[in-house]
Design a protein around this nucleic acid. Structure first.
Length: 110
DNA sequence: TCGGTGACTCCCC
DNA sequence: TGGGGAGCCACCG
């Protein structure tokens, strides 16, 4: 069974749910955590199915800290609003101090 | 059934 | 150092 690949989506959601408040991570970080650093696109795609789930997709951004997925939210700047609501500084759809708010899923292993 | 697309990232030149 | 191309895998039509 290719259950492992199917779990890829579920794992993405699981990791995204583990993102602590006021912190963000990148698609590549999650993908790498799942052992598919080159499948970062799939992570973002998985977020498409995050609708209706408790997955804080707004805490997942690209490697540059750009809110590339904000366009997929109901609101145009809803994603930015949510991040700012958590104390994250977002300017021009880009997260500031990304190094400070960046959260690594490998921290779970700690 | 097959092809195309996509919220990205890394490698090569 | 900077820019461009290829890769990856699942979902949709």
């Amino acid at each position: 069974m290719k259950a492992e690949t199917l779990n890829f989506f579920d794992r993405v959601y699981a990791v995204a749910k583990q993102i602590p408040y006021g912190r963000v991570t990148s698609y590549g970080a999650i993908a790498k955590y799942l052992g598919a650093s080159r499948s970062a696109r799939m992570v973002g795609y998985a977020m498409n199915g995050s609708g209706g789930k408790d997955v804080p997709a707004h805490r997942v951004v690209n490697r540059k800290g750009l809110l590339t997925g904000k366009h997929h939210f109901d609101g145009t700047n809803l994603m930015q609003q949510l991040l700012e609501s958590e104390g994250i500084v977002v300017i021009n759809n880009q997260i500031q101090d990304l190094d400070k708010v960046f959260w690594d899923p490998f921290s779970l292993q700690n």
